[in-house]
Amino acid sequence: MSAGPYNYSYIFKYIIIGDMGVGKSCLLHQFTEKKFMADCPHTIGVEFGTRIIEVSGQKIKLQIWDTAGQERFRAVTRSYYRGAAGALMVYDITRRSTYNHLSSWLTDTRNLTNPSTVIFLIGNKCDLEGQRDVTYEEASKFAEENGLMFVEASARQMGNRGDNVEEAFLETAKKIYQSIQDGRLDLNAAESGVQHKPSQPGRNNLSADQQASKDNCAC
């Protein structure tokens, strides 16, 4: 579909990372399909999802790469980090080990993405309060120390905390959009993770068309 017009003006690339079983695929599925998958098998390699959202009146297409947490996929999934504008880093509030591994996930993310990449920490499965193994305060402090945005969320329970799933994806996009507005994120940089699609000529005042063909094949 190289011949637009597009019904969105930007594409943001996201990755979702974290230990196996923390609920990455369920969060993605909740965000794109608004459904919970009760019995979700381990991801093979990577899964992909998209959704078009709106930020400050601009339509933005999120292209989301949900990576497999199992160790045998680790080496190759690292190559998906490159050019991510947003990274959702997930742990499971009922399993302390998944929280303890965050610093290694964070190191990987910092090494493999660029300084403008927005990192959002999600403490998932907060519907399982009775089995909590990591306090909100502790995770919140970790996030603050490392300059991450943070919520606790549940891919299972909508209403209440379930809305935080939506929030995590949307707040990340808002922050990326802000970086574009203040010029901190350079749209021309090869690996910014953002593509600008001049959908309606005249309505977008940012320089047009860069990158449009980069990883955009004609299908």
């Binding site: 579909m1 992909f48 292209q63 990883d215 955009n216």
Partner: peptide, 18 residues
């Protein structure tokens, strides 16, 4: 448009695993 059938491996990644 990228999806699991169209995204392309980075040449240096391919080389590394090769």
């Amino acid at each position: 448009m990228a999806d699991v059938l169209t995204e392309i491996v980075q040449p240096d990644d391919l080389k590394k695993f090769e």
